[in-house]
Design a protein around this nucleic acid. Structure first.
Lengths: 337, 337
DNA sequence: ATGAAAGCGCTAACAA
DNA sequence: TTGTTAGCGCTTTCAT
């Protein structure tokens, strides 16, 4: 038995006003309210306006759960992010936020909700409810990828495009990014370049491929010292070790700005001048790099656009249409290094 | 009429298996499945285990919408973030991500979903469906605050605690942060300090209060030049202008690391040595500041803890219990400046 | 252009 | 410990 409904006039705050209630007030049926509120062309414009006004006036709040149950979809996209409080994470800096911004903007404006999850705890049940899943940073989520794919749910991944043919990946053009750095070094006449970054990360591997591939046309093979993590200190340590063996290096391309900054620090400690003795290019074009002294040259990617694209892809997939992997343009921002 | 259900045995992928289906397989009723899946003590442990196993085996996916409709709550918390692609935003850098990380971690592990919205477009309807709302960065959301409060929905705000008594605010101890900077300068014997930051921002105003309050005990009044935005250039320009009038300054406390870095740049351009001639302290303890040359001293706040606290508060509120505003500890990280 | 009927999948309330 | 009944608020048929 439904409790007696009270209008706003009697002062009691009725916290759940339904379409049926509005219908009663408007003197129509619930389905007409439903249609009116969705701007259906089936309903008389006047009726529609009147109902809209009543809804507004009564503070009606649409019940998303009811619609979702009826429609058998959640109108929700889960975004899985790596948010462990670690300095070693790749998804640090403002980029994930830009990515999230792009995703959210595009998705909310097309009627979807964005569900943020980290997959740390037992968050899987939340993700299961979503109509689609966006994975940010495939590196950390290889297992999550398979899990999600096992559910047969639409999925889009942000990461290295080349690696996995089995699902839709959006990523920036890491190969081109690497090639751009190589071209720059060649133009400067540098002949002993270094690549700094762990190729175990798919995206880094692509950057190295583009870098080494372009250099190889000129018979140059870059040094590729071991780097275990993404931190400033890791970059510095790698360069320290490298200089001991190969003091003659004259150019350095790092897979992230953080590594590049660490490298510059180490270079300077060893008496090398940047960029006079050693040219340095970073990756991601972070504010950190841009405000560093000297301001760091870096390969730029537009994360907001990337987010929008990810969102479009997942929507396409959810709507049952095919989507393909895509690569985003990249360009080199030249600064002091 | 329900379409005939097909088990996984016949090969056809049944995309919506219900509790009733599981019940049929297990030879029990739907409600028993419901209880079993929720680990209700009412159900026989053996039955429960058997049902759990069947659910797993059949790849059952719980229907959140149905539960939410029935329970008349969404088990969802909306997080409203400012994500405009602007350099002037305060919510830049990795902090919002840490904040989001803390929130997500705490909320998902207690059964809630985190809905990310930016309030750019007509995202309000999404937010309305949430059981509670967390506002990140009150500055940009004064209007959103009132809107949400108008709905009578639980709300928690991240920002300056002192300003608004009408709702629950979690923020770091900005006054103490300012006081710490002042104490440091006093200990160094500095007597002509500057505060850099637009006090129109509530949090900045608190930092200034703490700073100026502590200094006033020693009869010192800081310079407070106009600063319009949060960027490096804004910091540099403000200091340029200030030095023209007051060349004798010997300490500078900036409301953000970005401003501090701009300030340092300007100081050096004017021939001042940092920290020999002018001591500088920033705010937020960003990697940007930490890796700067010279490494920037800064007031640190723990954003992950803050996120967790925000999440706890909103949960408390949703559960109908009272919650109070709270202030998080802050400490000064001394580096080279 | 509007309405009536039915049911999406789940769980509280009340039996048994 | 388990089951029956009923209904959360919405929207897709299928009428009118």
């Amino acid at each position: 038995m439904r409790p007696p409904k009270t209008g706003p006039a009697d002062g009691r705050k009725s916290d759940s006003l339904t379409m049926a209630d509005l219908a009663k007030v408007a003197g129509v049926s619930a389905i007409t309210v439903s249609r009116a509120l969705r701007d259906s062309p089936l309903v008389n414009p006047e009726t529609r306006a009147r109902i809209a006004e009543i809804a507004r006036q009564y503070g009606y709040a649409f019940n998303v759960s009811a619609r979702n149950l009826r429609l058998r979809r959640s109108m929700t996209v889960a975004v899985v992010v790596e948010m462990k409080p670690t300095l070693e994470r790749q998804m640090s800096g403002p980029y994930p936020l830009d990515l999230l911004g792009g995703i959210t903007q595009e998705l909310t404006s097309s009627g979807y909700s964005v569900l943020l999850t980290s997959l740390q705890g037992g968050a899987l049940s939340h993700v299961q409810a979503a109509d689609g899943v966006i994975l940010l940073g495939q590196g950390a989520h290889e297992d999550a990828m398979h899990e999600v794919q096992g559910w047969g749910r639409p999925m889009v991944v942000w990461g290295a495009v080349s690696r996995h043919e089995s699902h839709v990946v959006v990523g920036s053009d890491n190969r081109r990014g690497g090639a751009l750095a190589a071209e720059r070094f060649l133009a400067l006449g540098r002949s002993r370049p270094v690549f700094l970054g762990d190729p175990a990360h798919a995206e880094f591997a692509e950057r190295l491929e583009g870098f080494a591939g372009t250099l190889s046309k000129y018979g140059i093979t870059p040094f590729t010292p071991m780097v275990s993590s993404f931190t400033v200190t890791a970059g510095a340590e790698a360069v320290h070790a490298l200089l001991a063996q190969h003091p003659q290096i004259d150019a350095l391309f790092a897979a992230s700005d953080l590594l590049a900054i660490g490298a510059i620090r180490a270079l300077i400690e060893h008496g090398r001048r940047v960029p006079d003795d050693v040219s340095v290019i970073g990756y991601d074009d972070t504010p950190l790099g841009a405000t560093y002294v000297p301001p760091l040259s870096s390969v730029h990617q537009n994360f907001i656009d990337a987010g929008v694209l990810l969102a479009r892809k997942i929507r396409t997939l959810i709507e049952g249409q095919p989507a393909t992997s895509e690569t985003l343009p990249t360009h080199l921002v030249l600064r002091a290094t």
